[in-house]
Amino acid sequence: MGQPLNIGIVGCGAIVGQYLATIARLPQLRLVAVADLDLERARQAVKDHPDVAVTDVAQLMADPRIELVLNLTVPAVHAEIALLAVAAGKHVYGEKPLAATSADAQRVLEAAAAAGVRVGCAPDTVLGTGTQTARMAIDDGLIGAPIAATATMVTPGHERWHPNPDFYYAPGGGPLLDMGPYYISSLITMLGPVTSVIGAGSRTRAKRRIGSGPREGEEVPVTVDTHISGVLVHASGVLSTLVMSFDAVATRAANIEVHGEKGSLVVPDPNHFDGEVQLSRLGGPGWTPLPVSAGYQGAGRGVGLADFAATPPGREPRAGGQLAFHVLDVMESLLASAGSGRAVTVESTCERPRPVPLTDAATA
């Protein structure tokens, strides 16, 4: 009670720096060790953290000090590393998606339940003040009964800036599985679980050219759809329209809008923790900003770990495995619908995560 949660990180790629910064400033968390297939990359990641051990995966899993494994590997091995952590008796928290397939994700959840350990998963951005303030506005009835939502993510592709973008265009990647978790997690946080979907998909190019780093100019194959559109039917009856693209250039659409009988909300980018929520009410003066009223203030990637540590045993963390599994199931169902041209029932469900009161992230 009151002791920091001891963490070991597996995977020291591009995202690790953001997690390291958050762990370093949150007293609830303590980094013990890191591991990577490239030990030099792991050493460089923690070169400013002399007390953190650099080791291989097997040694990290065997380290009795480590209570939770933070899984920052590529999606294709998320399940493999998570299952190793569970087998070692450790909690596991991973980058999104929970696994490359819902079948693998189910194996992780079942193994964790049998071992008596818990599973958490990014994105934790939905715990920040942006999505949480919008959720409170909905719960407080500021837009009346919700009717519909839109979620739009458009970019010409991550290969322009990422030095090793291969996994974005391989199974487990694509705009939906890469960016969809932010948007769908936010929609579920605000509007509840999804019962069915209908989707369509396309791809414009068979190869992508890397635009930066030591592999600049190299081409990587594209084996997944790179533009996905769909409609999510929530259990509440709300209809959410989703566009996820690695093909289009730009958009002026809001990242997320939620529309109700009495008003509409503009919700900030769910890839960020904060941002301004705007409300337009029927008969009102137009779009006006709402004051920040809920969520972790000053949050960064990894605040979900602090929330995880503060969640009592037997209770699902807000950025928990059940939500992550449902999000993955929704995305797989969208892809299945895109392939078949038919609506698909989403077999899983989840509890709508508990709201986050306005809280300093350092005291999560």
Rank of each mutant, 00 (worst) to 15 (best):
I256C: 08
G237V: 12
G284M: 11
G284F: 13
A250W: 11
T288S: 13
A250L: 07
I210D: 01
N271P: 03
Y169T: 01
S293F: 10
A170V: 00
P214A: 01
G180T: 08
P289Y: 14
R281L: 11
A248H: 15
P171H: 10
R208D: 00
V243F: 04
S245N: 05
V249W: 14
G180S: 09
D178T: 14
G260L: 06
K207L: 02
E257H: 10
G298N: 04
L242G: 01
T204L: 11
G199C: 06
I256M: 12
S212W: 12
A200P: 07
G199S: 04
S196D: 12
S185W: 02
F167Y: 11
G286V: 00
I184S: 05
G173S: 04
S202F: 11
A254L: 07
A206I: 13
G174H: 08
S280N: 14
M244Y: 06
G211V: 00
V197W: 12
R208G: 00
S185C: 08
P171M: 07
D247P: 05
P270W: 04
G172I: 02
T251L: 03
G237N: 09
Y296A: 06
G230E: 08
L242R: 04
I188W: 03
S212K: 08
M179A: 14
D178G: 08
K262I: 01
V233Q: 13
L187S: 02
V231A: 04
P214H: 05
L282K: 15
T288H: 15
A250E: 10
P181E: 06
A250I: 06
G174Y: 09
P165G: 03
L232I: 07
V231R: 13
P270S: 02
G283M: 05
I184E: 08
E257W: 11
P214S: 05
V231N: 02
E216K: 15
G201T: 10
L239I: 15
P270R: 05
P270D: 04
V220R: 14
V194K: 10
G263W: 14
L279Q: 13
V224K: 10
I188Q: 10
Y296P: 02
K207M: 06
R209E: 06
T251R: 07
P270G: 01
V243Q: 10
D247K: 08
L282P: 07
R215N: 02
I184P: 05
P175D: 06
F246Q: 06
L191N: 06
V224S: 03
S202D: 10
Y168I: 00
